[in-house]
Write a protein that binds this DNA or RNA. Structure first.
Length: 377
DNA sequence: CATGATGATTGTCC
DNA sequence: GGACAATCATCATG
C-alpha cells in the first residue's frame, strides 16, 4: 500500500482537533440541494480532475476488495414466491390479467354456465353491471401496473446511469450494477404484489356483492307465473314437466330452467299442503284455459302447454289444446312406460296423485266442459 | 311493522 | 340426479 502523497507532511499540530461537527455536515448536505446544477457539475468536474483522484480511486478499490467478500454472502435471491403465483393465477382466472381482451365471450360464457342457475335474461342487468365493475377494476389495475413498470424502468435506468457515472470515481463492477437493478426490481415487485393483492380483494368483494345480489329474491313477472300456473293446472294429475317442457316454460316465462324447477317444486308442495287455498286459483286457470282453447281452437297461444316430449312424433312442443294434451298424456302413459318418464309417472301416481284433490268436481264454477278431468283422473 | 306469499337454498331420500 | 320437505330471506300488502 503505497501511501499517496499527503498534502502537508510537516504535520503542524492542528490548533483544534476539529471534531466532526454533525451540524456542519448536515448543513453541507442540505446545501447540496441549494446548489444549482451547473455548480454541482462544476464541482464534480473539479473533483474528477483533482490530482488526488487516482489515489483515492485506488484506495477505494482496496477497501472494496476487502468488503466484497463479506457482501458476497449476502447475495439474496428472490424466493419463488408462491403467493405471487397464487395472486397471478387468480387474476388470470378472473380475467383481470388479460388487458381488456376483446371478445371475452369464452370466459364470460363459462362464468355464465358455472353459476348455478345462471340466468341469461333475468340477471343480465346485474350481470352487465358486474362486468362493468370488473372491467373498471381491470382498467385501474393495468394503468397502475403500467405506472409501476414505467417508474421501475425509469428508476432502474436512473440508478444504472448513476452507478456508471460513479464508476469513474469509485470501483463499480457491472455485476454490482446488475445486483442493484435486481434489488430495485425486487422492491418494485413488492409494490406490484400489493397492487395485485388489493386488486384480488376488490374482485372478491365485487364477486360476493354480485352473488348476494343474485341471491336477492324477486317475484316472477305476471307472464311467467301465468305460464307456469297454466302448465301446472293443466297437468295437475302429473305436474312434472319434462326437461324440454321446462325449457319451453322457461323460455316463455323469461326465466331459467332451474327457476322453473324451483317453482314446480315449491308449487307441488304448497299445493299439496294447502289444497283448499289453491282451489280458486285452479278454477281461474282451468276456466281460463277452457276459454282460450275454445277461442283459439287448439292453436294454443297462451294456454297451450308443451305436451310430453317423449312422444317424439311431432315437434318438441306440439301446441295442442289442454284437452288434447291431456289425452296425449294419458294415452302415452298407458301405452308406454317410458324409462325415465315411467318412473316419474309412477312416482307421481304414488305420492302426488293420491294427494291431488278432484279439482273439477270441487270447482265452484261448475266447469261444464270438464276440462279438469285430468285432475280427477 | 306484522304477516302472508314466494323464490331460493339445503339436506335427505330414492 | 330429481323430488320432496324444511327453512331462509325477501317482497308485498294492509
Amino acid at each position: 500500500m503505497d501511501s499517496p502523497p499527503r498534502p502537508q507532511r510537516p504535520a503542524p499540530p492542528p490548533p483544534a482537533p476539529r471534531r466532526p461537527d454533525t451540524g456542519e455536515i448536515l448543513q453541507q448536505i442540505m446545501a447540496i440541494t441549494d446548489q444549482s446544477l451547473e455548480e454541482a457539475q462544476a464541482r464534480k468536474h473539479a473533483l474528477n480532475c483533482h490530482r488526488m483522484k487516482p489515489a483515492l480511486f485506488s484506495v477505494l478499490c482496496e477497501i472494496k476488495e476487502k468488503t466484497v467478500l463479506s457482501i458476497h454472502g449476502i447475495q439474496e435471491e428472490g424466493p419463488p414466491n408462491a403467493q405471487l403465483m397464487r395472486l397471478d393465477n387468480m387474476l388470470l382466472a378472473e380475467g383481470v390479467s388479460r388487458p381488456e381482451r376483446r371478445g371475452r365471450g369464452g370466459s364470460a360464457a363459462a362464468a355464465n354456465t358455472a353459476t348455478p342457475g345462471g340466468c341469461p335474461n333475468d340477471n343480465s342487468l346485474e350481470h352487465s353491471d358486474y362486468r362493468a365493475k370488473l372491467s373498471q377494476i381491470r382498467q385501474i389495475y393495468h394503468s397502475e401496473l403500467e405506472k409501476y413498470e414505467q417508474a421501475c424502468h425509469e428508476f432502474t435506468t436512473h440508478v444504472t446511469n448513476l452507478l456508471r457515472e460513479q464508476s469513474r470515481m469509485r470501483p463499480v463492477s457491472p455485476k454490482e450494477i446488475e445486483r442493484m437493478v435486481g434489488v430495485i426490481h425486487g422492491k418494485f415487485n413488492a409494490i406490484q404484489m400489493q397492487l395485485k393483492q388489493s386488486t384480488c380483494e376488490a374482485v372478491m368483494t365485487l364477486r360476493s356483492r354480485f352473488l348476494d345480489a343474485r341471491r336477492k329474491r324477486r317475484n316472477f313477472s305476471k307472464q311467467a307465473t301465468e305460464v307456469l300456473n297454466e302448465y301446472f293446472y293443466s297437468h295437475l294429475s302429473n305436474p312434472y314437466p319434462s326437461e324440454e317442457a321446462k325449457e319451453e316454460l322457461a323460455r316463455r316465462g323469461g326465466i331459467t330452467v332451474s327457476q322453473v324447477s324451483n317453482w314446480f317444486g315449491n308449487k307441488r308442495i304448497r299445493y299439496k299442503k294447502n289444497m283448499g287455498k289453491f282451489q280458486e286459483e285452479a278454477t281461474i286457470y282451468t276456466t281460463k284455459m277452457t276459454v282460450d282453447t275454445t277461442k283459439v281452437g287448439g292453436l294454443g297461444s297462451q294456454a297451450s302447454c308443451p305436451s310430453t316430449p317423449s312422444s317424439g312424433s311431432s315437434g318438441p312442443f306440439p301446441l295442442t289444446s289442454a284437452r288434447d294434451t291431456l289425452i296425449t298424456l294419458q294415452t302415452l302413459a298407458s301405452l308406454r312406460p317410458a324409462p325415465a318418464g315411467g318412473s316419474l309417472w309412477s312416482r307421481a301416481r304414488g305420492s302426488w296423485q293420491g294427494a291431488a284433490p278432484p279439482v273439477s268436481t270441487a270447482s265452484p264454477a261448475g266447469d261444464p266442459s270438464g276440462i279438469n278431468s285430468d285432475a280427477s283422473n
